[in-house]
């Protein structure tokens, strides 16, 4: 395998993220995906209530918080799939509303908890679907033919997720961990600037979950901005930047060491926990 994974999973990167002052909206060019005073309803329920956050390219950000804190709703709003009640999402300093659908879908990729992959489809064909981002006439008809560039991008995505070996196999023959890597390859094939993931490791065994995080780390080193909703705090502790949501509001944002504190965890999850440092890593240990 041509390893692109060499740069490894660790190495704390200087975080470029910073909490945004809520007062001003200045549309300066930036390298970030930002939420500005964002309020979003899920149905009629105000799930996100005035969130300010900034996610940079080349940074692994994780969104954490208890169930119902508004994590998934925030993620969908960042993707432009949920319309905000007020406030806005800015991508590279431009309001997301002003991006055309093709531009937006090329820049922002989404990976669900479980991607609906039809069993009879071949792995390579699934990954190739990621190349269609934005190239639709009326949103429905492909506007351009398949090119060698597309093949190259699919190859690269397969290599980077180590799925090239079984590119000709059908999805039905894959394990859960392999499926998630195929889904990741699909998301990467479109060469997005940001990848937003909704609980990508939720149903995976620990080894596979770590694997997904490791692949994401490599992409971040290559300049991709990752925003992942994560349930497992010990996985989230490996991110560069954390956003802790509580009842639709930001309770804390910053590097893991600043966010994962016993006080924050008690305030958001209602759980007493110790946070210990082991080697370079934070560990959250709930107390009974």
């Amino acid at each position: 395998m041509r390893g692109l994974r060499v740069k490894g999973s660790e190495g704390p990167r200087a975080s470029k993220s910073a909490a945004l002052e809520p007062s001003t909206i200045n549309h300066q060019p930036s390298t970030a995906l930002e939420a500005v005073n964002l309020r979003v309803h899920a149905g009629t329920f105000p799930a996100v209530r005035g969130v300010n956050a900034r996610f940079d390219v080349g940074t692994f950000s994780a969104v954490i918080g208890p169930n119902g804190a508004g994590k998934s709703t925030l993620l969908r709003a960042l993707l432009g799939l949920n319309k905000p009640q007020s406030g806005e999402v800015c991508l590279f300093g431009r309001p997301l509303q002003s991006w055309s659908r093709p531009e937006r879908s090329r820049a922002l990729a989404y990976l669900a908890q479980t991607e609906g992959l039809s069993d009879a489809t071949k792995v390579r064909d699934v990954v190739a679907l990621g190349r269609g981002a934005g190239d639709w006439r009326f949103g429905l008809l492909p506007t351009r033919p398949w090119t060698d560039d597309d093949d190259a991008a699919v190859d690269s995505a397969l290599d980077r997720t180590d799925t090239r070996r079984f590119e000709a196999r059908k999805v039905a023959e894959l394990s859960g961990g392999e499926r998630q890597r195929v889904a990741l390859a699909r998301a990467l094939a479109g060469q997005p600037r940001f990848l937003l993931l909704d609980e990508p490791t939720n149903h995976l065994d620990l080894a596979y979950a770590l694997e997904v995080i490791r692949y994401l780390r490599c992409e971040v080193a290559g300049g991709l901005g990752v925003v992942a909703v994560l349930h497992d705090l010990n996985l989230a502790a490996r991110a560069d930047w954390l956003l802790l949501l509580h009842q639709g509001e930001v309770l804390a944002a910053g590097p893991p060491a600043e966010v994962l504190t016993p006080e924050n965890l008690l305030a958001s999850y209602g759980v007493r926990a110790r946070v210990v440092r082991d080697a370079d890593r934070l560990l959250v240990i709930p107390e009974d």
């Binding site: 993707l79 090329r106 922002l108 669900a112 992959l117 489809t121 679907l129 990621g130 949103g139």
Partner: peptide, 15 residues
């Protein structure tokens, strides 16, 4: 593309 799921299809620009 729709087989990937509604949200994923929308994120790929399919209405």
């Amino acid at each position: 593309t729709l087989q990937l799921g509604d949200l994923t299809a929308r994120s790929l620009g399919v209405p």
